[in-house]
Design a protein around this nucleic acid. Structure first.
Lengths: 244, 244
DNA sequence: GCCGATTTGTCCGTATGTATC
DNA sequence: CGATACATACGGACAAATCGG
């Protein structure tokens, strides 16, 4: 993006991550930032709003803006709010291999509609994949995608990355993902494909995904083997949205 | 709050939840809302920004603002981004009993500092509690709180609610919580207090909490028995922050 | 394919309110 | 009490995407 606020946002983010503005310290005041970046009050605040939303800063009325970014390295692959699974693995230097185990078109039945929220009669593409990290099968996903959105995607496309196919070939981007995460006894079907080492339970995640048109286009269900994968997020209390 | 944008935000939220603006439909245009609420462009947009952040709407450039709120009832207690655990149970009509099983002050050792990020030598209050829902122990939590923040909190205060004590007696509010959620083999310590019914794994959650001063004041670790508890969140892609 | 109307997106300048020190 | 710093709100201008004629 070439927006002014976006440049400022990324620059301040860089300065925080570099340690120039350290954990629990205060940022320069808004007026200082306005002078530094030669822009208006509102534009600085818009940049700060994004940083606040990402858990980098907390504004303190009458005092200043405090840094709460803390550099941390995880021992698991963390599925966070930012990049795709592929990147999370790459960052940790792990070798990721994705294998498609089923790939078929179905029409939504009343039962399937109940689960996925898609309308009865709509055509879906259902893709099941196993993720192998450094030789172990740790992540099983089943995606239900609107056929009208995915077009003529092939299993090879899915093996690489569904989202990058959709963005590259269909000009579609993800806007919002609603996730639910829980621990659950593992179904036999999942056990068949994953390396569970005797565990009974896995983390299960349900995603409902909307694109930038606001169209609900994907329901997915994933199982993660214990110990390997985590999910992170950041909660901002309602009272703390003042920047926006 | 008595802010104009906050009233508008709550009113539109109510109208969405009531079904007046339904899932996948478009809101009235910004200009219409400006007329309806007799306020400025920016004030309407600020209200919409909050709704976007909460996963209620997606703005579509040149077209309108689409509703993605979907009413849903869960079969588990869902720990979401909004209220405390207590409320989540109350909403489902479940009887919640909290029992304090340990309550002691400790000084941060190098090892504890490594885990919690608190400075060595700082004094903490460590509280362990078990949550019983409808007769079953399903949720075990261990909170590490800055002693300087909690003051002279008693086990009775903790049995009710730590956060409402902190707000009521110490005038402190939570601003940001950073969570990590994973599935893990259950430690014997946790098994001792929870009703696991033979399961080996539980969902484990780590929270790091900052107050409205931006002060890091709490590290906590929780174990949830499978089947009973889930965690939800909403991811907004960076490209979709235009409202802010 | 172009034009104009509609709708969202970006940015500015200013004024005022409120909390902190 | 005054200076500083964040918070709210307004009004205006222009850019960019969409849609219908």
């Amino acid at each position: 993006m070439k927006a002014v606020y976006d440049k400022i946002y990324r620059d301040i983010k860089r300065r925080i991550e570099s340690g120039e503005f350290a954990w629990q310290e205060f940022l320069p005041s808004e007026n200082t930032l306005i002078a530094e970046y030669s822009c208006s009050h509102n534009t600085v605040r818009k940049a700060l709003a994004i940083l606040a939303r990402e858990g980098y800063i907390v504004p303190v009325h009458g005092k200043g803006v405090r840094v709460i970014y803390y550099p941390r390295s995880q021992d698991r692959v963390v599925i966070d709010s930012l990049g795709p699974f592929k990147n999370a693995c790459a960052e940790k230097g792990l070798k990721l291999v994705t294998k498609v185990i089923s790939f078929e078109r179905v029409v939504v039945t009343p039962e399937l509609s109940e689960i996925t929220d898609f309308d009865e009669g709509e055509e879906l593409l259902v893709v099941e994949r196993v993720r192998n990290i450094d030789g172990r099968n740790v992540y099983l996903t089943k995606n239900y995608l609107l056929a009208s959105i995915v077009g003529d995607m092939t299993p090879e496309d899915a093996e690489d990355s569904i989202y990058s196919y959709l963005e590259r070939e269909r000009g579609m981007k993800v806007a919002v993902t609603k996730r639910i995460f829980m621990s659950e006894p593992v179904a036999d079907h999942a056990r068949e494909y994953l390396d569970f080492e005797g565990f009974q339970c896995a983390a299960m995640m349900v995603n409902r995904v909307y694109n930038t048109e606001g169209t609900y286009f994907e329901y997915s269900k994933s199982w993660c083997s214990p110990r390997d994968i985590a999910m992170s997020d950041i909660i901002i209390r309602n009272g703390n949205l003042s920047f926006m």
